[in-house]
Simulated assay, not measured.
Amino acid sequence: MTFTFKILDKTFIDAITPLVKKLNNDKVSESLLKERIAEMFNQNYECAGVFDDDILIGVCGLWYCTRHYSGRSVEPDHVFIAEGYRGKGLGHEFFSWIYDYVSKKGCESIELNTYVNNYSSHKFYYNQGFTILGYHFLKKL
């Protein structure tokens, strides 16, 4: 199988939203997700996509910032690969493409969060060379 990787613009919101919704276990409505994703595109955010022919089968948000301890940084967010495509090396291929893409944009480091109970992602990120630096805390206002 040959896959295509590219940066998606706002016109892909309708295709991105159902994939991100699967990550949230339907905790956030599709309309609210679309609204939030549209707003994200107006911030320091890009969305990378994986295509099998013309079908979007994976996404990864990319948040950019500069951190005092790691320099210009990117944070992959809402990483999702459709279930039928998992376990075949596509995630590794996708992240290799992302590493190359963000390096060309001047990024010096990559940081990310993953849910505590998402054990398969932990294994994947360890295999990608990530280490645990700290804890992620959240407080809803």
Results as ranks from 00 to 15, higher is better:
Gly61Thr: 01
Tyr99Lys: 14
Lys140Thr: 15
Ile13Met: 03
Val50Pro: 05
Tyr135Met: 14
Asp53Ala: 13
Asn118Tyr: 03
Phe51Asn: 02
Phe3Glu: 05
Cys107Lys: 01
Lys21Asn: 14
Gly134Ala: 13
Glu35Asp: 13
Val50Ser: 02
Lys22Leu: 13
Leu133Tyr: 11
Glu35Arg: 11
Tyr126Ile: 12
Arg67Ile: 12
Ser121Gly: 07
Leu23Tyr: 04
Glu83Gly: 15
Asp54Asn: 13
Gly84Lys: 14
Val28Ala: 07
Val79Leu: 04
Val102Cys: 02
Cys65Asn: 15
Tyr45Met: 08
Gly87Pro: 05
Ile110Asn: 01
Ile57Ala: 00
Thr17Val: 08
Thr2Tyr: 10
Lys105Glu: 06
Arg86His: 08
Ser70Val: 11
Tyr101Glu: 05
Glu83Thr: 15
Lys10Asn: 03
Tyr45Gln: 04
Lys140Asn: 15
Leu56Met: 02
Leu141Ala: 12
Leu112Thr: 06
Leu33His: 00
Ala82Pro: 11
Gly129Trp: 02
Leu112Gly: 02
Ile132Arg: 12
Phe41Arg: 02
Gly87Thr: 09
Cys65Thr: 14
Gly58Trp: 00
Cys60Glu: 04
Ser121Met: 04
Tyr101Cys: 05
Leu90Gly: 05
Gly87His: 06
Leu112Met: 06
Cys47His: 04
Trp63Arg: 11
Ile55Val: 13
Thr11Pro: 06
Val79Trp: 00
Leu138Asn: 13
Asn24His: 15
Ser103Glu: 07
Leu133Gly: 12
Ala38His: 05
Asn127Gly: 15
Glu83Met: 10
Gly58Lys: 00
Tyr126Arg: 13
Ile81Leu: 07
Asp14Cys: 04
Leu141Glu: 07
Leu112Arg: 01
Glu30Ser: 08
Glu30Asn: 08
Phe95Leu: 02
Phe80Ile: 14
Phe80Pro: 07
Trp63Glu: 11
Thr4Pro: 06
Arg86Val: 06
Leu62Glu: 01
Tyr119Leu: 13
Ser120Thr: 10
Leu19Phe: 02
Asn118Ser: 06
Asn25Asp: 14
Leu56Ala: 00
Asp14Phe: 08
Val59Trp: 02
Val74Leu: 01
Val28Met: 09
Phe80Asp: 09
Asn113Thr: 13
Glu75Ser: 14
Phe80His: 10
Met1Gly: 09
Gln43Cys: 09
His122Lys: 07
